[in-house]
Design a protein around this nucleic acid. Structure first.
Lengths: 337, 337
DNA sequence: TAGCAAATTGACAGCGCTGTCATACCTGAC
DNA sequence: GTCAGGTATGACAGCGCTGTCAATTTGCTA
């Protein structure tokens, strides 16, 4: 049979309850006792049984990650966040449960309810774009389930992580302006996604700050996909006065823009500079490699989970953590022709 | 308080044990009783407590998905498999746990041991390339943990799913031959991956069957990445006698080949046909869209998990399920110039 | 129509841990 | 030296289910 808490207690010469206290980092145990118990656990390679802990302690040691899987068939962005959440869970001996949701489905809330009543997660991590879905947040509060968000749109009282995307977008566009570009285009992401808004706002801010007037023909709608990037770029490259630089709201679209440049016989970066946002693995594999904004998704997932776990422990001093971005200047941007 | 099994029992007028039997689909319950209990469960919206079930029943209702996250930072292939596994788990009220591993790390086995002793998964799903890592399989057998594999290399007694990749590759190349191509190149994947071997073998088989002798210069090594596809294609397009068609062992590399074609001023498919393998979302977004082999990763993950779950239930008639492939002929292949 | 095996149902303990509360111990103020 | 007021530890029940085995009912056979 496996070693149980009782066995550890016997070996350490204390009661099971005391071992339990040590296991859960509770107060009122002398350092000497605590040390003795720790040593016994170590020596016996004790592994607490999570089911027993949940049953008796009314906590599951599970946190759920909720995500929307409507548009993106397996996006790498989510996979990276997931990876970070998983790492944090592992470190704290929690387990992670996944719950794909479809925002458009009518049983959205029912699916959340089922998750909660079937698995009793101690908390949930929310990812874009469901970080700001009001009925969900309301329900979670009703059910008393704490949550942390990655890049929530509303930065009020939320617990989680964000990056100053607007500032990052502005920095990106300023980089282009610094290279001498004046006709700078922007490909917008899916309307109403926070990411799209912030990045557009940053673009506008940079243009305005440099005294450049925005040409409406140079701001085109995309949808965060490669194909939408290609389409948007075709519009831009068909203009009589083509842009000399294109800032796409994410890397997938930027890749599409580079693709379309090839179609039009335009060399990147000699004829047109292209830059994106996200620093996906693909962006480094392209040739020339894509200038982009590094958004540390993995790190953000990890931090969101850690914020949540700290909150569960009652050490929830943390609110919305702001994580720094960094510009990755690579081969796809160069001085204006 | 939540409704417990005991409450259902009272309502149905039977003992708790009988409700438990119904819950677990055990034998020796009359249809009438079973029906009565089911109705009571339904009426009360009964949700069994998984912790209590695990604790008393010595099963966790968890299956773990093991994967290698060394090379591929968040590959969509794995994300799709994961999605399928998750779907199967959900349907059977199991939960899925993820365990990223690094095949090169020395504590590989220790990490597996920790997973087992911490969470007691009832079984595990193995994904390429760790489906055939002997020390792992040995350890799982020692620990008595059942497993199912997605695309295992050795098709012996394994439980899981495969696709006849060799046949699919052959069909792909035969499609090219049918279009009149004779100088057909192949870009190989990472050496020793089953996928690389089978696809190469299928390529050779088709060439031989058509009476075409293999030109060693036309078979180049890649590594499943976009960048490696670009590099491989540059070698091919620099040859004095260029290939008229390139079959890359996966879509990422095929995308790289198309990219490189652009660099060399070659039009796809007029000057050169390009095809891949996997049918990743990207392949449809390219322009022209990529001719490829649809490998239903999501479906395969689902089937592997279902095979495993059936095995756990003792209904393990299933062995290695072979799933059909389908050629997706799209714009990137055309008659030889 | 008694008699026996098989099918059905239930009583009860216990899975491994934690919450509650009682008890033992210790400190410093007077 | 005594006692209040804390701190440290332990006894014990019970979380919600299932395994075991005994009790009861049913279906057959002779």
């Amino acid at each position: 049979m496996r070693v149980r808490l009782e066995d550890v207690a016997r070996k350490a010469g204390v009661s099971p309850k005391t071992v339990s206290r040590v296991l859960n980092d509770e107060a009122n145990v002398t350092d000497a006792t605590r040390e003795r118990v720790r040593a016994a656990m170590e020596a016996m390679d004790y592994r607490p049984n999570p089911s027993a802990r949940s049953l008796a302690g009314h906590r599951s040691f599970v946190i759920a990650m909720l995500y929307d899987n409507n548009d993106n068939p397996a996006s790498t962005y989510l996979a990276e966040i997931q990876d970070g959440v998983l790492e944090a869970c592992d470190a704290h001996r929690y387990s992670m449960m996944l719950r794909p949701l479809r925002m458009r489905d009518s049983d959205f809330i029912r699916r959340v309810d089922a998750l909660i009543s079937d698995h009793h997660p101690d908390g949930v991590v929310l990812t874009p774009p469901i970080t700001d879905y009001a009925p969900l947040l309301k329900r979670l509060r009703e059910l008393g389930v704490p949550y942390a968000s990655v890049s929530p749109l509303r930065r009020g009282k939320a617990l989680g992580v964000t990056m100053d995307e607007q500032l990052a977008a502005r920095a990106m566009v300023e980089h282009l302006i610094g290279l001498g570009h004046r006709r700078i285009a922007h490909v917008i992401g899916i309307a109403n996604h926070g990411a799209s808004r912030w990045r557009l706002a940053g673009y506008r801010e940079a243009m305005a700050a440099a005294g450049l007037t925005e040409d409406p023909a140079l701001v085109v709608q995309g949808a965060f996909t490669f194909a939408s990037g290609v389409e948007a770029a075709r519009k831009l490259f068909s203009l009589r006065k083509r842009p000399t630089a294109v800032f796409a709201a994410n890397d997938d679209m930027a890749t599409g823009v580079m693709w379309a440049a090839g179609e039009y016989g335009l060399k990147v970066p000699q004829d047109v500079s292209v830059c994106g946002f996200d620093d996906t693995p693909l962006s480094r594999q392209l040739w020339p490699a894509l200038t982009t904004v590094q958004q540390p998704s993995r790190e953000m997932g990890k931090i969101a989970a850690e914020q949540l776990l700290a909150d569960l422990r009652g050490q929830g001093a943390g609110r919305l953590v702001q994580i720094p971005f960094s510009l990755q200047v690579r081969g796809s941007t160069a001085a204006a022709p």
